[in-house]
Design a protein around this nucleic acid. Structure first.
Lengths: 346, 346
DNA sequence: GAGAACTCCTGAAACGATTCAACAACGGAT
DNA sequence: ATCCGTTGTTGAATCGTTTCAGGAGTTCTC
């Protein structure tokens, strides 16, 4: 006979059932808040669960029902905007039975496909994909297995929900701000992806288009000046070097991302020019770097928390089958003016 | 009869077994590279697997064996040092059967305990905890369920493995660098956690101690000046304001973390002082921010990639039962001198 | 040439939950 | 009194994999 077993194994649903003197099936119902349990049984079962310190075995649940796990695929841990999204998602999941896990997706279609496979192998109940580079058809294919919410990519689908910030508007805000200050020669640095893909729906393309449209709207179509580079410090630096070498150099540079704007700042310093006296610089994303004192970069703010919360909400609606029609949620960004922009010197 | 089923369900191990004309048990062996399979059968089974596009069902595997999932708990997504660790871990896991998932742990003991529970409910095979604030006993308790590797916390355990960077040495590097430049009044900004916990083993405490020891070693014990604050921009700012108000102000400030150093830079700018002419500033962690041109902050570099890779290696050794003795791996940091430090003005 | 020792393979029993059909008990309507 | 619908509960089947105790050949050893 077992003399004294400390706590050799986790309590199972059967243990709980025995202690509460009900069937395992009944315990399962309590666990899932399913229909058809009397308050009396509820209480008895819950008491037994806490007494045994019972915790449901997620893998076992996943065999038949749900895993109560939702996967978040994010391409780049270094992007300071993503933590806000994750926090927003977490805030909405808090208090529900669902738990989030993060998958480091990488920036290529292959690596992202791999992590999607890995997560679906683990039977997540839903997937939130942040700025995926996967083709639309690949996403829609995945939707047949598991519901998806896509964050930060324009272009709608009838199969999955999407949450975006309106980059067209955001780029317009920057151009308006600079034009209002009196700038005319406003250049833009765009991220041009070399890999084959779905460029038209990615934020960078929309930002460039927003810049173009706003310049036209302000009667500055003759001044449109786009340099294709990458959203990175090095990319911004290279683009700025090119711009500063122009015979007539721009009085303002609008980089499509804060990281690129940092590169611009470096290049401007190296050229012996001052900001904002000689040249104004603006970014996009309002990352923490932009807010830092020595940088103080004018930028466009997206409410990541809000976007994350809504993405999680949409996903749970899908998982719980409360809705079967695709939704596109579009938020408006705001401009945060800081010391890196000022009226041009005449 | 089923006329035309597109692909209604995933292939299971039984489907593979049927197609390959072997038993499910045999397929399982192939899957796990287990002992006792002839090359001929190997090949037949593998062919069947690819033909059916078979992918193992992780939840089902978790019921008896392993899930081939390892959980990484990180307290703060915003800390720019963590992505390097994650990359290192990923690099070592790449090519193995294991997949990593990230758990947003939060910075309190409760939230970290919660995510540990959530991950063990999901039967991860191992856990890598980055700078956990949990008590040692709580960690050792968890070790009884699942192997753990702790990154970035000093103090050894006989139950779990640990990978640290030697913060004592790192702090010494900074003091030596500044003292070599001719500084004597070198102040330090320490992170002082208000919550009850295990302070002596956390990096911040060790860094402060390293500062203290180095100052003594250089014969500067009379100049030891530590301000307790937090590792954050606001914390660094407040501490710097306090230091600059000293009757005799320090000629160099060594902040225990880059983020805090950024706050110091702000405060110094606001005070109308120049860096490094009027005051030298150094940080710790060598984050990407430190490297940025306009900031150019002298800092201490830890090889996060290396640390992550080794943590993953240690964990797999444990999971695969190749070792049962606890290991402490300690790496040496290096100093990266930039433009924020210079000899003091006499 | 008989047994021992390997090697390769298999059938069936787990693992811990959910689901489904069935059933008991109980009021309320006829 | 009988039937019916509703509510609360349960036993048994099920999910896809691993594990375990053999079984059938084949090779080795003395």
């Amino acid at each position: 006979m077992a003399a004294a077993e400390p706590q050799p194994r986790r309590a199972t649903i059967t243990d709980v059932a025995q202690l509460a003197q009900v069937s395992p099936a009944a315990v399962s119902k309590v666990l899932r808040n399913a229909y058809g349990v009397s308050p009396a049984m509820q209480e008895r079962v819950r008491a037994a669960m806490t007494e045994l310190g019972y915790r449901p075995h997620a893998a076992a649940r996943g065999m038949r029902g749900q895993t109560y796990t939702i996967g978040v695929v994010l391409p780049d841990l270094r992007n300071p905007f993503f933590p806000e999204l994750v926090e927003g998602i977490g805030a909405h999941l808090d208090g529900t039975d669902y738990q989030m896990v993060l998958g480091p997706g990488g920036s290529t279609a292959e690596s992202q496909a791999r992590i999607i496979d890995a997560l679906t192998d683990r039977r997540v109940d839903g997937l939130i994909m942040i700025a995926p580079v996967l083709s639309r058809s690949r996403l829609e294919e995945t939707t047949r297995t598991v519901p998806i919410v896509v964050i930060g990519r324009h272009g709608r689908s009838t199969d999955y929900d999407a949450v975006v910030d309106d980059d067209l508007v955001g780029a317009g805000l920057v151009v308006d701000h600079l034009a209002d200050l009196g700038h005319r020669r406003i250049a833009h640095i765009e991220h041009r992806d070399t890999t084959r893909g779905i460029p038209a729906t990615m934020p960078q393309t929309v930002r460039a288009e927003g810049y173009r449209q706003a310049m036209q709207r302000r009667g500055l179509e003759a001044e449109i000046d786009i340099v294709a580079s990458t959203y990175s410090e090095a990319g911004g630096h290279a683009a700025a070097v090119e711009l500063l070498a122009r015979p007539v150099r721009p009085t303002a540079i609008f980089a499509g991302a804060d990281v690129a704007a940092i590169g611009v700042l470096n290049a401007v310093h190296e050229a012996g020019l001052r900001i904002p006296d000689d040249i104004s610089v603006a970014g996009y994303d309002n990352t923490t770097i932009a807010a830092m004192g020595p940088i103080s970069l004018t930028s466009v703010d997206q409410d990541g928390n809000l976007m994350g919360t809504n993405a999680a909400r949409l996903l749970l609606e899908r998982i719980e089958r409360k809705r079967d029609r695709a939704v596109l949620l579009s938020f408006s960004p705001t401009l945060v003016a800081r010391r890196s922009t000022a009226p041009p010197q005449t």
